[in-house]
Simulated assay, not measured.
Amino acid sequence: MRAVQITRFGGPDVMDIVDLPDPVPGDGQQLYEVSAAGVNFADTHHHLSSN
């Protein structure tokens, strides 16, 4: 699956698109396919204040 990954501090330019293994749901969990997701301006800066 494709994902956005943040591995270092910085601005929106540190968000990398990477390929990861498909997730496997655990007991009592459901896996949903998402074809599109939005990211707003505040989301691009959230990683700076979460550490």
Rank of each mutant, 00 (worst) to 15 (best):
M1I: 09
M1K: 10
M1R: 07
R2K: 10
R2G: 01
R2S: 01
R2Q: 08
A3Q: 01
A3G: 01
A3E: 04
A3T: 03
V4Y: 07
Q5L: 03
Q5W: 04
Q5A: 02
I6L: 07
I6P: 01
T7N: 13
R8K: 05
F9N: 03
F9V: 07
F9W: 06
G11V: 00
G11H: 02
G11S: 08
G11E: 03
G11Y: 02
P12W: 03
D13K: 06
D13R: 04
D13T: 06
V14S: 01
V14E: 05
V14M: 03
V14H: 01
M15N: 00
M15Y: 00
M15S: 03
M15P: 01
D16R: 07
D16L: 07
D16I: 02
D16V: 05
I17V: 15
I17L: 15
V18M: 07
V18Q: 09
D19C: 07
D19S: 12
D19Y: 11
D19F: 11
L20W: 11
L20V: 15
L20M: 15
L20H: 12
P21V: 00
P21H: 04
P21S: 08
P21I: 01
D22I: 02
D22Q: 06
D22C: 01
P23V: 01
P23K: 07
P23S: 05
V24W: 15
V24M: 13
V24I: 15
V24Y: 14
V24L: 15
P25R: 00
P25Q: 05
P25T: 03
P25A: 03
G26T: 05
D27C: 06
D27I: 10
G28V: 00
G28K: 00
G28A: 05
Q29S: 04
Q29G: 06
Q30L: 11
Q30F: 10
Q30R: 07
L31H: 06
L31F: 06
L31Q: 10
L31R: 06
Y32C: 08
Y32P: 05
Y32E: 11
E33H: 00
E33L: 01
E33A: 00
V34C: 15
A36K: 10
A36W: 10
A37L: 12
G38M: 11
G38C: 12
G38Y: 11
G38Q: 12
G38F: 13
V39E: 11
V39G: 14
V39K: 06
V39H: 09
V39P: 10
N40V: 12
N40W: 12
A42I: 10
A42W: 07
D43S: 08
D43L: 05
D43P: 03
T44V: 12
T44Y: 12
T44Q: 15
H45N: 08
H45R: 09
H45L: 04
H45T: 02
H46K: 12
H46F: 12
H46E: 11
H47Y: 06
L48V: 10
L48D: 04
L48R: 09
L48K: 11
L48C: 07
L48A: 08
S49L: 13
S49T: 14
S49C: 13
S49H: 13
S49F: 13
S49A: 15
S50T: 13
S50P: 05
S50F: 14
N51L: 15
N51F: 13
N51Q: 13
